[in-house]
């Protein structure tokens, strides 16, 4: 490789297959599908990078992790990961993941999806999975609108923010996702932005190793719709905004961390508690009721 002080030479600009550089994360990626569809300065790719480094640090086997995603920009994440992954119908990522986690308790099931998918159309699934404390890790990528379909106002669009279905500004009260998750019964709740990339990766490792329903909300810049419609610049300007306005406050009361339009964003790890998961609770409860008659399900058995 001919490298000059200012970078690569023109010859390397169009690399031949032999010279093609291999990214160290390639073993977790379906590189044949790259480049991905996410816009320039979108933060979802950064969150995917954080997920891969969090997964690497957690020490889980690649064969024992499954990723499920729903519909939307962030729903594409499952398709780009070289893991057992599934791209479900709109809002039904958690029901699919629930079935997967209960049918094969050895699997660590991760749901990577957007705010519109998880808490709008999939809102009921979300609260009930949290109530039952099913062993899932939910990574909710929140870009404040329905970006794939043209920037419609969603359940997290802050008041005053412009969206294509709210041309004078959104006037609906948005969800406070960490509060929703905590009050539904999640055992691990955190919020980060796509700028807090190392903290996010650490949080993902903790959530992956935590038995029970763990929830991480990640604030993500949407350059093409949310930032453009609100004249906030590019995704890089939003990253600078997160740098100046994100306030790290571990253990903050989730009732007080609403996100207002272009205002301070409280990030951190809010909840980390221990509670028996759905399967642990079921086995213990039924063994108490049925005694020796109870035969617990041990996952798929070789035929």
């Amino acid at each position: 490789m001919n490298k000059t002080a200012t970078g690569f030479t023109k010859k390397l600009d169009i690399p031949t297959p032999k010279e093609k550089l291999r990214h160290p994360m390639d073993r977790y990626l379906r590189t044949e599908r790259f480049p991905h569809i996410w816009c320039a300065t979108c933060g979802i790719g950064t969150i995917l990078t954080a997920f891969i480094s969090g997964l690497e640090k957690s020490g889980l086997e690649q064969e024992k992790v499954a990723v499920v995603s729903g519909i939307g920009c962030s729903g594409r994440a499952a398709g780009y990961l070289r893991l057992d992954s599934f791209h479900t119908t709109h809002g039904r990522a958690i029901p699919f993941a629930t079935g997967l986690a209960l049918g094969n308790p050895e699997l660590k099931v991760v749901v990577i999806s957007g705010d519109g998918d998880l808490v709008a159309i999939g809102g009921n699934h979300f609260i009930h999975a949290a109530r039952r404390n099913i062993d899932l890790t939910i990574i909710c990528i929140n870009n404040f609108n329905y970006a794939m379909t043209g920037g419609q106002a969603g359940p997290t669009t802050p008041i005053e923010a412009n969206a294509s279905t709210a041309p004078y500004g959104c006037y609906e009260f948005p969800f406070n996702l960490p509060y929703l998750a905590e009050s539904s019964g999640a055992v691990y709740v955190a919020r980060w932005t796509s700028l807090h990339i190392r903290r996010l990766a650490k949080s993902i490792t903790e959530a992956l190793l935590k038995p029970g329903f763990s929830f991480i909300e990640v604030i993500c810049p949407c350059s093409t719709l949310y930032a453009r419609r609100n004249r906030l610049g590019t995704g890089l300007d939003l990253m600078r905004f997160y740098h100046d306005n994100a306030l790290i406050k571990h253990g903050a009361d989730t009732r007080e961390i609403d996100i207002h339009y272009q205002d301070r964003i409280v990030v951190g790890k809010f909840i980390d508690k221990d509670k028996p998961t759905f399967l642990q609770k079921r086995d213990k409860f039924l063994r108490g009721k049925l005694g020796d008659k109870f035969v617990p399900y041990k996952g798929p058995q070789p035929i």
Partner: peptide, 12 residues
């Protein structure tokens, strides 16, 4: 940091 912040897996 460049490796982990790059959304395109284009730098390492």
């Amino acid at each position: 940091l460049c490796e982990i912040i790059c959304p395109e897996f284009a730098i390492f």
